[in-house]
Simulated assay, not measured.
Amino acid sequence: MGMEGQTVLITGAGRGIGAELARTFAGAGCRVAVNYSRSRERALALVEELRGMGAEAVAIQADVSDPAQVREMVDNVLDNFCQLDILICNAGVAWRGLLRDMGDGDWERLRGVDLDGVFYCCREAYRHMVARKQGRILTISSMWGRSGASCEAAYSAVKAGVIGLTKALAQELGPSGITVNCIAPGVIDTEMNGDLTAEDLSALAEETPVGRLGTPSDVAAAALFLASPQARFITGQVLGVDGGFLS
C-alpha cells in the first residue's frame, strides 16, 4: 500500500483493537508508537512482538485525558521517529447503565478519554502535520455514536462528538493535504464488551446481517485502507465497520 517507513501513533494500543491496529500497520512497514495508559506489560510485550516482525516500535505511556501528557507523548514520538504521519485515536472506555445512575466522576472519565482525548491528540498532531503539508488522522467512534443506544446515552453522546470533530477537522485540514476520517465499529469481540453475557452477545450477532460479531482485524483492515495513499481523496467520512447493523 506504499506505507513503508511511515510513523503511526496509536492510542490505547495495549490491547484489543489498538493492539491489532499496531500489528496491522507494522505488517505494512510502518514504524509504530504504541500508546498505553495502564496496560504496561501488554504494551511492552506487543512492542517486542512488533520488533520480532522486523518493525521499529516503541511503547509510550500517557493518559490521553491529560493534555500535558498528550503533548509529551507526541514530543516523544517525534524524538524517536522524527515525524508523525498517521494518528489513530483509538483509546476509549465504556460505561453502561441508566443515565440517572451515572456519577459525575464516571461522566468526566468517559468524556475525558473518549472525546477530550481525541481533541488533545488531534491538536498536538495538527501543528506537525500542517507544517509538513501531509498526514492522516483516524478517529474511532462507534455505531452508537451514529444512532444512539439505550443504557449507553453518555457513551453515545461522546462518540457522536468524535464524529462531529472528525467532520469539522476534515474541512479545516483538507487544504493542508491532511485527511481526517472516522471508523464507527459495531459490536467487536474485545474485552470492552466483556461485561455482556453470552446471551447478549449471541443476540447482537443475530441482529447483525452478516451473522457474527466483528473482530479487531475487521477494524484494523479498514483503518489501514483509510490511512493509505489509495484513500487520499477520502476525508470527512464515517465508515461503519458493523456487519451491516445500521444499514
Score class of each variant (00 low, 15 high):
residue 82 C to E: 15
residue 170 A to N: 02
residue 247 S to N: 11
residue 180 V to H: 02
residue 14 G to L: 02
residue 238 V to T: 15
residue 148 G to L: 05
residue 72 E to M: 09
residue 166 T to G: 10
residue 69 Q to H: 04
residue 54 G to I: 07
residue 160 A to S: 15
residue 246 L to A: 14
residue 145 G to P: 05
residue 85 D to T: 03
residue 3 M to G: 06
residue 6 Q to M: 13
residue 234 I to W: 04
residue 38 R to D: 10
residue 171 Q to E: 15
residue 42 R to A: 14
residue 155 Y to H: 07
residue 214 G to P: 01
residue 167 K to G: 00
residue 246 L to K: 09
residue 110 L to A: 03
residue 66 D to C: 07
residue 183 I to E: 00
residue 186 G to P: 00
residue 73 M to Q: 06
residue 37 S to G: 07
residue 63 D to S: 08
residue 104 D to A: 14
residue 155 Y to A: 05
residue 31 R to S: 08
residue 140 I to H: 01
residue 60 I to C: 03
residue 15 R to Y: 07
residue 145 G to N: 06
residue 53 M to K: 15
residue 186 G to M: 09
residue 136 R to H: 09
residue 16 G to Q: 01
residue 136 R to M: 03
residue 140 I to A: 02
residue 152 E to N: 12
residue 78 L to R: 05
residue 40 R to W: 09
residue 191 E to M: 11
residue 151 C to L: 14
residue 199 E to G: 10
residue 194 G to P: 09
residue 98 L to W: 10
residue 135 G to Q: 02
residue 121 C to M: 07
residue 3 M to Y: 10
residue 133 K to S: 15
residue 238 V to G: 03
residue 233 F to V: 12
residue 173 L to D: 01
residue 239 L to Y: 08
residue 105 G to S: 13
residue 62 A to H: 04
residue 236 G to Q: 06
residue 119 F to Q: 01
residue 24 T to Y: 00
residue 64 V to R: 00
residue 1 M to R: 12
residue 210 V to Y: 14
residue 81 F to C: 02
residue 45 A to G: 05
residue 100 R to I: 13
residue 5 G to E: 05
residue 104 D to K: 13
residue 178 I to V: 11
residue 112 G to R: 02
residue 187 V to H: 03
residue 108 E to K: 10
residue 166 T to L: 03
residue 108 E to N: 14
residue 204 L to Q: 13
residue 191 E to H: 10
residue 43 A to L: 04
residue 209 P to W: 11
residue 210 V to T: 12
residue 81 F to Y: 08
residue 141 S to P: 00
residue 120 Y to W: 13
residue 132 R to M: 11
residue 124 E to Y: 06
residue 14 G to W: 01
residue 102 M to I: 13
residue 56 E to D: 12
residue 150 S to C: 13
residue 227 A to S: 15
residue 21 L to R: 00
residue 129 M to I: 08
residue 63 D to P: 10
residue 170 A to F: 06
residue 128 H to L: 08
residue 179 T to L: 06
residue 76 N to Q: 14
residue 30 C to W: 05
residue 212 R to A: 05
residue 231 A to W: 01
residue 92 G to M: 02
residue 4 E to Y: 12
residue 236 G to N: 07
residue 52 G to M: 06
residue 223 A to I: 06
residue 94 A to Q: 15
residue 142 S to N: 04
residue 24 T to R: 01
residue 88 I to N: 00
residue 109 R to F: 03
residue 57 A to W: 01
